[in-house]
Simulated scan of single mutants.
Amino acid sequence: MTATIITTFSADDLVRHLPELGALLRACVHDGASVGFVLPYSVEESEAFWSGKVLPSLRAGALVLFVARHGEAIAGTVQLDYDTMPNQRHRAEVRKLLVHPSFRRQGIAKALMTELEHRAHQLQRSLLTLDTRTGDKAEPLYAALGYQTAGVIPQFCRDTLEERLDSTTIMYKTLGA
């Protein structure tokens, strides 16, 4: 049985694994994940997200990219964005928790979030925030990990698969000392 290993990727790692990261994001979007994209969604758009949005923040040292590997395959990722203003150095944002549809229900999302919270604590971040589509599969996971709902914003974003607007739930977690 192959174990899933959680690592962090550098900017160079992202560049080396751009096709796999692009395939992961594309598979999640095509499976209906509400992570900012709508269908049709191409490989080129997916890779452009990683190289245009994530890579600059990694290079600037403002973001940590956690990657779950199952054997040689990239099974999931999550980002810890800690590029905050001076009066917000105590907080960070959880971004783009992605688990490939083939690897779901194996504890990968929880393992990624556990590593993210550990690193946030090391970075002296005591408050984490995130948003998730209201009613999405991830919402109960976040609640089980101790995230509290701050509120719901109706009609926040367009649905990935259908022509409708979805609400988003804003959540937060205070990390212990």
Rank of each mutant, 00 (worst) to 15 (best):
I6N: 05
I6F: 01
I6P: 12
T7P: 13
F9S: 02
A11D: 15
A11C: 13
L14E: 01
A23L: 07
L39G: 10
S46F: 09
S46A: 14
E47R: 15
A48H: 09
G52D: 07
S57C: 10
R59K: 15
L63D: 05
V67Q: 02
A68H: 06
R69H: 14
H70V: 02
I74M: 09
Q79G: 05
D81M: 06
Y82K: 10
D83E: 02
D83K: 13
Q88Y: 08
V94Y: 00
V94K: 04
R95Y: 10
L98K: 00
V99I: 09
V99R: 04
H100I: 04
P101F: 06
F103V: 00
L112D: 03
L116N: 13
E117L: 07
E117I: 06
A120T: 07
A120C: 05
Q122Y: 10
Q122R: 15
S126P: 01
R133G: 12
T134L: 08
K137C: 07
E139N: 00
P140N: 06
Y142P: 09
A143P: 08
A150D: 11
G151E: 06
V152C: 14
P154E: 01
P154F: 02
L161W: 02
E163H: 14
E163G: 03
R164H: 03
D166C: 15
T168A: 09
I170T: 00
Y172R: 11
T174V: 08
A177H: 14
